[in-house]
């Protein structure tokens, strides 16, 4: 039988392995679903484009277009050539001049006039049909924005007290920790960064705080300076938009201690 220290070591080692495996599995799953989603979008775009072409072809076969030019725009040249063969050889044929129009040419020219009107509507259709497809193509490249968590409602109301962090140390408030447990890596956390030096808060408006904010921005953190107040008394805050990993593996500088918390924490 193992003694309790061996059991503790085994449990912790196995837990670390298990967590690593879970993360790998999640990454694989995320990658797989991203690929499926991308594939789905590509198929949807393809089907949309195909459908656009098909509907254009149907209109041609119904002989709705007045001119060959219109038909060429929609890539339905063959169908239209048959319909408008009269221009090449049968122009003026009374068959196409209902009501005994003597020349038939006017009739054709009228048709052309109607066709120009249709041309406009077809162009509009094309615009409507193809515009969203381009938008969807772009959406493959642009990732949707991550959900932002800026506060957390504790189940039991509590006011927490914390010791000021020493230089080079950082910690997250208890509500923030609870939020990170609940939401994990999939969201961004909008948190106030409080800087401490010698156990005292460094004023966010100070030059030192600004320099530190710039340092963090340089490290790739999204640093936002926000002001809150009632108009008379306005306070400035350094805010981070960070992932759980960025907060838990925070790159703390040696000059300051850092506390991360939600803005509305008591």
């Amino acid at each position: 039988m193992k003694d309790y220290e061996e059991v503790v070591q085994d449990v912790l080692r196995r837990s670390v392995e298990e967590i690593g495996r879970n993360k790998k599995r999640q990454r694989m799953l995320l990658r797989g679903s991203c690929m499926i989603a991308a594939l789905g979008i590509i198929i949807a775009v393809g089907v949309g484009m195909r459908f656009g072409r098909d509907s254009g072809g149907k209109e041609n076969s119904a002989g709705q277009f007045a001119t060959q030019e219109d038909a060429e725009i929609l890539g339905a040249k063959d169908v239209v050539e048959g319909d408008f063969g009269m221009e090449g050889g049968r122009g003026g044929n009374t068959d196409i001049v209902p009501g005994g129009n003597p020349s038939g040419y006017d009739m054709i020219s009228d048709e052309r006039t109607d066709g120009e009107g249709k041309m406009e509507s077809i162009k509009e259709d094309l615009h409507e049909n193809f515009e969203p497809a381009q938008v969807e193509e772009n959406s493959i490249i642009t990732m949707p924005p991550m959900k932002m968590i800026s506060s957390y409602q504790e189940k039991e109301k509590a006011v927490y007290c914390y010791a000021a962090p020493k230089e080079g140390e950082f910690f997250c408030s208890t509500p923030l920790k609870h939020a990170m447990e609940e939401y994990g890596e999939e969201v961004l956390y909008k948190v106030v960064v409080q800087l401490f030096c010698d156990g005292s808060v460094v004023e966010p408006e100070s030059e030192e705080a600004k320099l530190e904010g710039e340092r963090l921005a340089g490290l790739g953190y999204t640093v936002v300076w926000e002001s809150y107040g009632d108009g008379e008394e306005v306070s400035q805050y350094i805010m981070l938009h960070a992932t759980k990993k960025q907060l838990t593996k925070f790159d703390a500088g040696n000059q300051y201690g850092y506390m991360f918390r939600f803005f509305d924490e008591p």
Partner: peptide, 17 residues
Amino acid sequence: IHTAEDLMEDTFVRLVV
């Protein structure tokens, strides 16, 4: 008892993970 010991560890691993 050996299997029970493994299951005890599994229980704590589940708790930690």
